[in-house]
Design a protein around this nucleic acid. Structure first.
Length: 265
DNA sequence: CTAAAATCCTGGTGGC
DNA sequence: TGCCACCAGGATTTTA
């Protein structure tokens, strides 16, 4: 379940091996993952050079020299690695991008939810996303403004990528915990002080996640350590680290949601 | 508008 | 030990 910090970790690890490289070929093993189509990708990507690699929300964005971009979303189980073309292919690698230095970018995705987009303008894919929570210009005032005229429970709103980009189930729960706010709260009842705590809690959880190189779950990831620092996520029944009350789990918007019933009001 | 449910997938888990 | 029903989970789509 890569979220913003996990994707940021992958991006930082791939910038060195990929920026400046040219794609020389593509092999598609799961056509449904490719947008707009595998033919389009195979015909248009080879010969294009990577000018920059950035992140937007949970998308990796490969900016191509001369315009256009390749976007990859890892969804639940995706991972990307660079390896020499001769090296043994791991299981569940459904898309392989050949590079001009004899290496390959390999998109491994057990559950096949991941997506690859080749577009002229990244905004075709990312245009409707909300603001980046860690952007330098995204201050508490802009965060508070997002909640104007919004209604409903807090947790599903935090997971809405058009509301705020990059937050997923783990960091929504961890952010609410740090803020001392119950994720079941109706957002129209949140006070300015609570929204400020939420702003800081969410950003602190995301920054800690990046610092620890993300969370490693399902044996998928790259040595991240954040899973060892969860305060509530996946700790149902275990004692709250602050007050020892058992962590509760409920389902909100179809997502498991974890919180301390004592510390979060 | 919000919200819940169904959808896509597979590996892991718990029950028997 | 083996089989199977069931679940997680990001985002989208459908239905209420």
């Amino acid at each position: 379940m890569p979220e913003l910090p996990e994707v940021e970790t992958v991006v930082r690890g791939l910038q060195g091996p990929l920026v400046g490289r040219t794609f020389t070929g593509v092999t598609v093993g799961w056509p449904r993952a490719i947008r707009p189509s595998p033919d389009h990708l195979r015909q248009r990507l080879p010969g294009r050079r990577v000018a920059a690699l950035t992140r937007r929300a949970k998308f990796l964005v490969f900016h191509l020299e001369g315009g256009g971009a390749l976007l990859i979303h890892l969804k639940m189980s995706g991972n990307l690695q660079v390896a020499p073309a001769g090296e043994a292919m791991p299981l569940h690698v459904h898309t392989v991008f050949d590079l001009d230095n004899g290496h390959q970018l390999r998109f491994q995705d057990t559950r096949k939810f991941g997506r690859v987009h080749l577009v002229d303008d990244p905004a075709e894919v990312t245009g409707r996303l909300g603001p980046e929570p860690l952007a330098p210009r995204f201050g508490p005032a802009r965060f508070r403004a997002l909640f104007e005229r919004r209604r409903g429970r807090l947790k599903p709103l935090l997971l809405n990528q058009e509301f705020l980009a990059g937050v997923g189930n783990i960091y929504a729960d961890e952010g609410c915990c740090r803020a001392g706010v119950d994720p079941r709260r109706l957002v129209e009842t949140l006070t300015g002080a609570e929204l400020d705590r939420l702003y800081r809690g969410l950003r602190a959880a995301l920054r800690t996640g990046i610092m620890l190189r993300g969370a490693s779950l399902d044996a998928v990831y790259r040595g991240g350590e954040f899973q060892n620092h969860f305060r509530v996520y996946g700790r149902t029944g275990e004692p709250c680290r602050k007050c020892r009350a058992p962590i509760r789990r409920v389902v909100l918007g179809g997502r498991s949601t974890h919180f301390c019933p004592n510390c979060q009001k």
